[in-house]
């Protein structure tokens, strides 16, 4: 968790210094969700998420330098610099991205489940989405089909209470979003996303159930977005008070775990401080290494449009 957070600090630094551009969305405050959940997956389970994707990529084991290089638009990035912060992918890590059109990837998530079932595999597809994304029409179509066809897919709504500048109460007719699965005869529940141990425990139970039954599930994980929507969201007073954010920091999943370790397991505070320091140093090094790496060659613009041909060149 501290590595993820340190990475996000460096990604914001890259944005501020102009080394990263476009849209950049950090995961700060939501770490317990991705880690608790993904720590319970089977290594070959396919994972897909939206544009707030750095944490998932790191947890799945993608080299942080390669992730940071992508965020900086460098040749050694996950997508050779052509995707950027929102579009990290790694086939080797069963990470299917990194998607920018809100809700669109939920259909792909069900498609991953479809392929598993078709091939007779025992994996489960994990599809993360935001609370805002749960309003996309395609998501309703997909829940229906996933349930109709018994697809082994879990939709994990990372409910951080905001869709950009719109609070849950202004975008969802029923703020208990997990209930939407009810109409599709799909298992659903809401869990706390601020305690990594709890998330892990719940995830293990839910995932093994889906794996056994090949029935999809919709899980709403409650967490909170400490950062702005994206790095360019510079007036958060439009949708929340400073006080609310401070209050939410009291539930910080990193502190929660640290407290558990020191108070219940007698872990020495200095060890935790050392972990923290090492994470920060590591991610500073990641930043420097990515920043020093070369930009894509101009000809790269034409590659990967197709698998087997190049598009017509020139203006």
């Amino acid at each position: 968790m501290v590595r993820m957070r340190a990475f996000e600090d460096q990604s914001v630094r890259a944005f501020r210094s102009g080394l990263a551009g476009g849209y950049l969305h950090v995961y700060t405050g939501m770490e317990a969700t991705a880690i608790g959940w993904l720590s319970s997956r089977q290594p070959d389970d396919p994972i897909i998420t939206a544009y707030r994707d750095h944490a998932h990529a790191l947890y799945l084991g993608i080299d942080p330098v390669v992730c940071m290089a992508e965020i900086m638009g460098r040749a050694k990035g996950t997508s050779k610099g052509k995707g950027g912060s929102m579009h990290l992918y790694s086939a080797d890590h069963h990470f299917y991205g990194g998607w920018g059109i809100v809700g669109g990837h939920t259909a792909l998530g069900a498609g991953l489940g479809f392929a598993i079932k078709y091939k007779g595999g025992n994996q489960v597809a994990h599809c993360f989405l935001g609370d805002g994304a749960a309003n996309a029409g395609v998501f309703f179509e997909v829940m229906n089909m996933a349930s109709l066809w018994d697809l082994p897919v879990i939709f994990i709504i990372e409910n951080n209470e905001f869709a950009m500048g719109t609070r849950l109460e202004f975008h969802a007719a029923d703020p208990e979003m997990h209930k939407r699965a009810e109409g599709f005869n799909m298992h659903h529940e809401r869990i706390d996303g601020m305690d990594v141990i709890d998330v892990r425990r719940d995830a293990q139970r839910i995932i093994s159930n889906v794996r056994e039954t090949s029935r999809p599930a919709l899980i709403e994980v409650m967490n909170y977005r400490y950062a702005g929507h994206g790095a360019a969201d510079n007036d958060q007073t439009l949708y929340r008070s400073q006080q609310e954010v401070e209050l939410a920091w009291k539930r910080d999943p990193v502190h929660r775990l640290a407290n558990l370790l020191t108070e219940q397991y007698g872990v020495n505070k200095q060890i935790l401080e050392k972990i923290q320091r090492e994470a920060e140093e590591e991610m500073e090094g990641v930043y420097d290494e990515a920043a020093a790496s070369p930009k894509p060659e101009p000809d790269e613009v034409y590659s990967d449009v197709y698998t087997d041909m190049q598009p017509e060149r020139g203006h």
Partner: peptide
């Protein structure tokens, strides 16, 4: 016209 490719992220491209 624009190049016949999806828009790449890297600024130089």
């Amino acid at each position: 016209g624009g190049l016949n490719v999806p828009m790449p992220y890297a600024r130089n491209l």
